[in-house]
Structures are given as structure tokens and as C-alpha cells.
Design a protein around this nucleic acid. Structure first.
Lengths: 345, 345
DNA sequence: TTGTAGGCGTTATCAT
DNA sequence: ATGATAACGCCTACAA
């Protein structure tokens, strides 16, 4: 049933040459081979439907041409875009892309990292930020170090306990700017809905929010800080909390778009009109952001580009290892219809 | 700089045993090894931070534990969900998932299939339907055959020129049902916006639409058939065409949700109200479908489950090859607010 | 229970 | 220009 593929030995035999010669023409090495023999080998390979075995090649060459991307969930539009960018560059350069869903679980991250090490993946891109602190910090860094030692490259695309070269969007800056935008519209009571506790990106965006508020000389009322979890249902729960407040804020800043969508749904179901009753903005600018009604004011992140840059960084690292660097990419505020100037009512 | 990882030889040496013994304990084979030596080996492996080389293991074992999923675009929510299901099952069973974006281009499909063959991928799941006919049909089937011959498994999750076991959602039936639903609401002039020309899923859904119309004894006016391309912007162009018609249909059925979203945008921008001026429905039930305003009536496909079933099928095929089968999964109509009963006006 | 040796498919080194 | 051979890291008959 399962008939094994012909090896280069078969090709050599059929062409009447040595395996060395056959290998030289098949691997398109620069080694000189006479035109006549080259033809013979090519011919034989053709007839045999020869397919080089990348596994064997990788074993010998000590690199796999395998590139992995660790994401929280590849079905989340945020990660999907990033992964797309990674695959694009990987494919252009003859690398295969392995997709790993970690669900932000450090244990799953560790398991995948180990497996990837087993497969001798040349590069690993980690996104889907981790927590500020976890019991697995040392574990994770140990395995990353081993990967780097054997010549593999690791890059993170979001703040993470893992110490590796990193490329990130400007979370603090973006949050600061969009908060400043709300302030410029006259809002002074601005709520913030965070992500899961201790998740680094959420914390960074909260910092930006706080910086802007502080700069405007506004004390943040404790009730303005609401916990979410990056999901729509988390946003809906936050909406409920908002509506229970004695004094309603005039604006809310959700730390990511999904949360904002949940807020939008939840608030509207409670009879609040957006933006008339409350202005709303998010962070990320998912494709959905311009489809919802009202369209969402948010911080645009060039997600696909982020993935591309990550992959390019890996490729560069593979060529010549360099000191860990951190690159911060700018982002831009997209003003849409979910925010309007503050009015008394 | 790049220091190679210790091999099993190093472990054996350190433990003072033969490589065979070391291998036996590391590969957790059933072969009997005394408890004492097992300990020694484990100890040595631990100290050396030994990591088995999956590449070498795969080469020897003649299977890679690599599973690939070919999609049109992993950032498309439709494919993203399917891929998620695949990765889930793959991971559970110790397989790694390779993500391949084909952009529905047969040439890219072919290239990826070849590369995957080179890597001796154990299983390949193809989704992102192909065209009804392409110059590459033979090419594609030839390589698929080779993959199967060497023991690899291939499964398609949408109609495709590639001949392989297949699991699909009921495109014809779903389209027939949702069209029947529109008819039951009293609509008689129903437009259909297709996907790209010659793409099989689109054709199947059009068939379902035609069947329902025929069963209702309604002749389809040529102007009701509008060409789209599965994208939002295609939907917007279709919207423009619709508004140019002398007699406006009272309902439109878009062959996928993305197209429906585009129609929604486009029509609303032309001042048409949905569903008052025209009822609208889609196919797929993407997460966005319930977020847009009005929420979209559509055919729900269990996308993630489709991916899971595809992966499970691969696993089954790997255990024991069987004759190509075609499994059709049912889907259900989700009635939301983008459709209302027909009224004169 | 343990060890020896050959082979999985390539490529690179060293001869010829 | 071509060929023989070792080696990449692992597993598994086959022996002991």
C-alpha cells in the first residue's frame, strides 16, 4: 500500500552515477557537474518522480526551515492578521509556518516551545501577550535560551516575560493619545475597561490612560476602573457594571476592540445610546470596527505588518545573532462615530 | 555561538550505557529496561538537557507528525475557525499544524503541496474551495496521488477538483432552505450575489437558490444574478448594481457573509434601509453576523467542528486507508433582523 | 536485560 | 568532473 518514495540513491542508480553526483545536481549546489551527467540525473529524477526528503536534508543541514508562530487564538482577528503577515514572509523565503494556539496559558506555551525545540524550528514568533508574572517565567526563559543556544531565533510581538528581541506597537503611547483625544472632546469622566488581570498589554494601555488623565489633572475615580477580559462577553459584563454606577462617566475607553464591541452591545441593550449618552473607543482597529454601528473610534495597529516585521527579524537573527533589541512601532488614532464632544445632559 | 544540542549518544555515554538502551528509555518504548539503568539514563538526560530530535526520529520512523492545512487566507474568519478546529485536534494527538495560505491560486496550492510532500507531512487538509475547472487539475491530482501513495492522507473540506475524501457543509441544501425562507416571507423577486466565477462553493449555493426558486415556480430574472467575489468590496459593488436596477428585488441572498456585509454597507450608503427596503441574508454565520446592524439572517456553519472533523478524518485515514468518501454536514438557518416579510410599497 | 551494527535520505569531505 | 564514505540523530533487528 504505502510505497516509499524513491531516494536519491535510486536516482543515482537509474542515472548510472554516484549518489554524490546525483545529490550535487538535485541540491543545485555550485559544485561543477558536466552538462551531460546533469541531464542524465535530471532525467532519472523526472522519471522516478523523485522528491527530496526535507527531513533528511534538515537533519544533515542542522536547520529545518520551519518557522513557528505562537498566538493566543488563531481565530481571533487580531492574531489572525499577525499570523498572516508571518506566513507571508516565511513563504517568500522558503519557510513553512507552524501555527500554535496557546490560549495565553503558560503551560501550553511551554509545551509548544519544547515541541518546537524537538523539531529544531529555526524561528519562533511569540504573540498573545503573557502575564506580568507567572510561576513559569523561569521555565519559559530556560527553554528559550536553549533554543537560542542551538541557533534558533525567538522574537516576541507583545510584552512578555520571555526575554527576547521584541517588536511591539506603542501600547502606552496609543492609549495616551486616544485618552487625550477624549479629553480634547471635553470629556473629563472617562472609564477604562481593562483586560484580564496581570496581562501585560492591558497594563500598558492602562498606563497610557493614566498618564493622559494625570497630565490633564484629573483624578481617576476608582469606579472608573472596570475589569474586562479581552472578550466581548467581558465587555458586556463591564457594560452592566457601568450602568449600575451612581454617576455615569461620559466616555469609556476599552483596552481592546473586542471589549468595545461587547460594551456597545451591552450598553445599547440597557438603553444607552452611543455616542449620545456615552462616548466609546477601543484599541486595535479590527476589520469589524468600521462595520459596527456606530463605527468605532479606536487605535489602529498595523497587525499584518507587525507579523511581517517579526518574521523579517527572525530571518535577520538567523543570519547573524545580535543583542536583544526592542522596537516600538507607532500607531494611529482612527476617529469614527462612537465618540462625540462632551455635552451636559 | 550556536552550540549543537546533545544527542542520544551523549546521554548514553554519560549514563554509561549503550545508545540502544538510552534510546529505549528516551523513546518510552515498551522494551524492558531495568529500573536502575532507566534511572541512570533519565538522570543523564536531565543533566544534559537532552532534547530528542524529531527530525531524525521522523526520518527513521517514516512519518513526520506534521499536519498541514491549506486555506485561502487564514485571516478570513471563515478559514480561521476551520484552522482552529484542525489545530485543536492535531495538538491533542501530538501533531504540529502547518498553516498554508493559497489565496485560492492553484499554482500556490501546487507549490505548497509539493513542499509538504518534501517534508513528508502525514496529513493535509484542504479548504478554500477551488475552481470548477483549472489547467492545474491534473497537476494537483498527480501530486495528491503521490502523497497518498507514500502513506500520507489528504482531505478536502470544500468542493475541489482534487479527488480525496471530503467533508463539507451542505451548500446546496443550506442555500435552498434560506431561499425558501425568503419565499415563505412572501418575497418573490430575490436577487443572488455570487462569488468569483467558477468557484465551486458559489456555484453550489447558486444551485440551491435556483432549486428553491424553481420549486416555487418563479422564473429568475437575469438581472437578479449579480457577480461578487466573496469580499466586502465585491458586495459593495453588487450593491451599486442593485440600486441601478429599474425594478428593485425585495430581497437579496449573498453567497457568503462577507459579501452580505458589503451589501449592507453599500445599500445603506445609497439610502436603502435594511430590511424595510430590501431583505438581506448571507451564508456562513461569521461572528460578525450578529454584531452588525441589522443583525444578519444567514446559514450557520459549524466551522470549527468542520476543522475538527477534517483532522479526525486524517487521523483515521492514517490508521487505515479507506475508499474516498464524501460526508455532507447539515447546517441551520439563523433568522435575525436583516429579513422581514414582504410588503408592497 | 543489554549491546552491536545497519539504515532512514542527505550532504560534505576527501580521494581519484 | 566524478566517486566512495562518513556523518547528521535516531531506532531496531539481531546477538550476546
Amino acid at each position: 500500500m504505502a510505497t516509499p518514495l524513491p531516494s536519491i540513491v535510486a536516482v543515482a542508480k537509474k542515472a548510472g552515477v554516484s549518489v554524490a553526483t546525483a545529490s550535487r545536481v538535485m541540491s543545485s549546489s555550485t559544485y561543477p557537474v558536466s552538462e551531460a551527467t546533469r541531464e542524465k540525473v535530471l532525467q532519472a529524477a523526472q522519471e522516478l518522480h523523485y522528491t527530496p526528503n526535507s527531513l533528511a536534508r534538515s537533519l544533515k543541514a542542522q536547520h529545518s526551515k520551519l518557522l513557528a508562530v505562537l498566538v493566543g487564538d488563531n481565530a481571533d482577528p487580531y492574531f489572525a492578521q499577525v499570523a498572516r503577515g508571518v506566513e507571508e514572509i516565511a513563504n517568500e523565503h522558503g519557510y513553512l509556518t507552524i501555527m500554535c494556539n496557546t490560549e495565553r496559558d503558560p503551560i501550553r506555551e511551554r509545551t509548544y516551545l519544547n515541541t518546537l525545540q524537538d523539531y529544531r524550528a529555526d524561528g519562533i514568533i511569540i504573540t498573545g501577550s503573557g502575564y506580568n508574572h507567572t510561576d513559569y517565567t523561569d521555565d519559559l526563559n530556560a527553554i528559550v535560551q536553549k533554543i537560542q543556544q542551538r541557533g534558533g531565533a525567538v522574537v516576541t510581538l507583545s510584552p512578555h516575560v520571555i526575554q527576547a528581541p521584541s517588536i511591539q506597537t506603542d501600547n502606552v503611547g496609543g492609549a495616551r493619545e486616544i485618552t487625550a483625544y477624549l479629553l480634547s472632546l471635553g470629556h473629563r469622566s472617562i472609564a477604562f475597561v481593562s483586560g484580564p488581570e496581570d496581562v501585560t498589554v492591558s497594563d500598558q494601555r492602562q498606563q497610557g490612560y493614566q498618564q493622559a488623565m494625570e497630565a490633564a489633572g484629573i483624578a481617576i475615580h476608582p469606579t472608573w476602573l472596570i475589569q474586562g477580559d479581552f472578550t466581548q462577553s467581558g465587555g458586556e459584563r463591564a457594560a452592566y457594571q457601568l450602568t449600575q454606577l451612581a454617576e455615569r462617566p461620559s466616555a469609556v475607553f476599552a483596552c481592546n476592540d473586542e471589549t468595545a464591541f461587547g460594551l456597545m452591545n451591552g450598553l445599547q441593550q440597557q438603553g444607552w445610546r452611543i455616542p449620545q449618552d456615552i462616548s466609546l473607543c477601543g484599541f486595535g482597529d479590527l476589520p469589524m470596527a468600521k462595520m459596527v454601528v456606530p463605527s468605532l473610534t479606536t487605535v489602529h495597529i498595523a497587525l499584518r505588518e507587525l507579523g511581517q516585521k517579526g518574521a523579517q527579524k527572525i530571518l535577520a537573527l538567523l543570519k547573524e545573532p545580535q543583542e536583544p533589541t526592542e522596537e516600538i512601532l507607532p500607531n494611529t488614532i482612527i476617529k469614527r462615530n462612537s465618540t462625540i464632544p462632551f455635552t451636559e445632559h
